[in-house]
Simulated assay, not measured.
Amino acid sequence: MIDLYTWSTPNGHKVHIMLEEIGADYVVHPIHIGQGDQFDADFLKISPNNKIPAIVDQDGPNGKPYAVFESGAILMYLADKIDRLLPKDPVKRYDAIQWLMFQMGSIGPMLGQAHHFNKYAPQAIEYAQKRYENEANRLYGVMDRRLGQTRFLAGNDYSIADIATWPWLRSATTQGVNIDDYPNVRRWFEQIGERDNVRAGLQVLADHKTDLTDEQAFENMFGSQQYTKR
C-alpha cells in the first residue's frame, strides 16, 4: 500500500498517473498547498523540502515503510519497484533518465516560471514574461526535434520520462506557447492524453482547487511563508 501526499498540480499529476499506470494500491492524503498544509511538521518529516508530492511505501525496502519525496525520485522508485516504465538495458535506461532530468531541470522550472509570470504575478513584468516564454518555446523545440525521431521522449517505448513531462504541457497557452507550432509535440501530447490511466490520474483530487486570488493562499504559495525558518 502506498500513502500518497499530494495536490492537483503538474508534479502531483505525474505521480497520480504513475500509480495508475502500475496498478498500485494507494490512499490519497490531500496536502492543501493554498491552506499551508505543506508546512505541517508531520508532512515535513516525509517531505523535508515542503513540496508535494511525497509517498510512503508501507512495504518498502526490507518490508519496512519508506518515504520518498521529489517527484522524479518517486517515479524512479516506483518504476524499479514494479520493474516497468524504466528499462533495465543500460542505454535505454539512461535515455529515460536523461529525459526525466530534462523535465526536472528544465521543463518544470522554466515552464512553471512562464506560467507564474503570465498568470499569478501581482503586476506584469514584461522582461520576465518574455524571458520565460522564450525559454518555454526553446524547450518545446527541443522536444519537437526529439519526437520527430522517436515515438516517445526516451525512444519508442513509453516511460517515466513521458509521465513526468506530459502534465506540464497542459498549460501551453499560459506559458506563451502555441503547441500547433510543434507538431511532433502535439502528436505525442494527444497520444498520451488518450491513455485511460492518464485520464484516471488526472481525476485524483480533480475537485480540489487552490484559489490563488485568496490573499492567504497566495501568501502560502508565493509569499513569506515559503521562507520562514522551520
Rank of each mutant, 00 (worst) to 15 (best):
D3E: 15
D3F: 07
Y5H: 08
Y5K: 11
S8N: 15
V15Y: 03
E20N: 07
A24C: 05
D25I: 02
V28T: 12
P30R: 14
P30F: 15
P30L: 13
I33L: 14
G34R: 05
G36F: 11
D37F: 06
I46W: 05
I46G: 03
I46N: 05
N49L: 12
K51D: 06
K51Q: 14
P53T: 02
A54P: 13
I55E: 02
D57F: 11
Q58T: 04
D59F: 07
N62S: 11
P65E: 04
A67I: 02
V68A: 07
V68I: 12
E70W: 12
S71P: 08
S71H: 07
M76N: 10
Y77P: 03
R84Q: 15
R84W: 05
L86V: 11
L86G: 05
P90T: 15
V91S: 02
V91A: 08
K92A: 13
Y94N: 14
D95N: 15
D95W: 11
A96P: 10
Q98L: 06
P109R: 07
L111V: 03
G112K: 03
G112A: 03
H115E: 05
H115T: 05
N118D: 06
N118W: 10
K119W: 03
Y120L: 14
Q123T: 13
A124F: 08
Y127F: 14
K130V: 07
K130I: 09
Y132C: 09
Y132L: 10
A136I: 08
A136Y: 03
L139G: 07
V142A: 01
V142Q: 01
D144Y: 06
R145F: 08
Q149C: 01
T150M: 04
T150S: 13
L153H: 13
D157C: 04
W166E: 02
W168C: 00
W168H: 08
W168G: 00
L169V: 04
R170P: 00
A172D: 03
Q175L: 01
Q175H: 12
I179A: 12
P183Q: 15
P183W: 14
N184M: 10
V185Y: 05
R187Q: 09
E190S: 07
I192W: 02
I192P: 08
R195V: 14
D196A: 15
N197P: 00
N197D: 03
V198W: 09
R199D: 06
G201P: 13
L202Y: 14
D211N: 07
L212I: 14
L212C: 08
N220E: 07
M221N: 08
G223Y: 02
G223T: 00
S224E: 15
T228D: 06
K229R: 13
R230I: 01
R230W: 04
R230A: 04
